[in-house]
Amino acid sequence: MGSKLGWLKLPLYGALLFLYLPIAVLIFMSFNESDAPFTWTGFSTRWYGELISSPEILTGFRNTLIVAIAATIIAVVLGTLLAVGLARYQRSAALEAIALTPAIFPDLALAIGLLTLFTNLNYALGLDSVIISHALFCAAFVTAIVRGRLHQIDSSLEQAAADLGDTAVGAFFRITLPSIKPALIAGALLSFTLSLDEFVIAFFTNGPSTPTLPIVIYSMVRFGVSPEINALATLVLLTSALIIIIAQRNLKVKDQI
């Protein structure tokens, strides 16, 4: 039976090939010895070594890390507060839609809007403006995830805490927060990965002296794709994939309880 229906798996493998071929080529070429971008001459890890010795890349990496961590912290706090507010005190579908929409806004529209806003406020562009911008759209993702989690947990838990003598604030920290912890971790990891490789918004809202890693890569690519870029992209890809896997596992394991 397996052999008879084997051809049915062809579309599956075809789709997977389509999805993963570019990535496979990227990783493969990052180990190319030669600096000719399209011809394979032999295995080498020299491009990974060159990454570490490039001050531009290291600065970009540092900036990206600062932005990702700061934006994640802000997004988790704001997103959680928003989700709890929506779940507990507000039954308006319109408000809920407004709260979640920044997650699916076109990056370009958001970027232009933010740039206009910062310019009008005479706000000097720099890492802090990127942090604010990233926190904005990441908060929408956190809200969506935490909101989903709050839907699943029994809303009488907080009432039970109150009935047993706890204050509203106490019940939030002792009962609500631990119950939504998996969603907070998942939201934080997602925010971190989104911010890590975000280009368009960072490009618009950044100052000239503080490029983030995607901006550094972009400026390098303008003069042609070097194997160094391949190596860098491979590292970014692996980091993001790893974080997403951790986030997924975290949500799944906790949901079974």
Binding site: I153, D154, S156, L157, Q159, A160, A161, I175, S179
Partner: peptide, 8 residues
């Protein structure tokens, strides 16, 4: 509570 509302 009807749902017992045990803290998970």
């Amino acid at each position: 509570f009807q749902s017992y509302a045990l803290f998970p």
